[in-house]
Amino acid sequence: MFSFGDIMAEALGLILTWDRDLSEIVLLSLRVTLTAVAISCLIGLPLGAVVGAFRFRGRGTVTVLLNALMGLPPVVVGLFVYLMLSNAGPLGILGLLYTPTAMIIAQTILVTPIVAALTKQVVEDLHGEYAEQFASFGLTARARVAALLWDARYSLLTVALAGFGRAVAEVGAVLIVGGNINHVTRVMTTTIALETSKGNLELALALGVLLLGLAVIVNAAVMALRASAVRAAYA
């Protein structure tokens, strides 16, 4: 029976020795998460900006839908993507099940509503300030969205950060569509779940520490950038 201190010491030893397996898992986690967040931002930022800046029929419904989808249960998304990508599903022919791409798809579905809903709020507030000036300039809808997204860029970093937090910590969906296959789809969260169930607490804890460290570093970097922007009155 190991004490917590022993397990922690072994976990730190694993991090310091940084073997190939650990490196592979961390890098795949980053690849899947960052790709999903990037795609979510490509979709969610303009979508949220449009909903935030314009009045149109059905806007209230879209807003309610986006807010509701922020709380999507990951396992339900995982199941949905699984059914779509399985051999019997409409996209089965693509052969994407149990690949990192499937994991990216699942995470994108989870993160996009978060990015869109938070962007909508940020842009709506900014648009309230700019609306008359933009109307006076005679800005086209596209130029208006582009200008709002640019001027809200530092606030939107926090939005992207929220998406990153959701994606990097997610386990249910990626486990279902990725299958946690060694050297193929094994990421930090699924490994932690697996190794804990096997009783291999050292590796699980090592990955847990890394995951926490990663989250702290990314958060700190974004917050520092935002703070400098606030000081310069650009945020």
Partner: peptide, 24 residues
Amino acid sequence: AMVFQRPVMLRRSVLANLNFALKV
């Protein structure tokens, strides 16, 4: 063109504010 009671400044530099108006 219109100038408002409370000037609306974009979150950009003075130069960028002027450039923006000409660009649009």
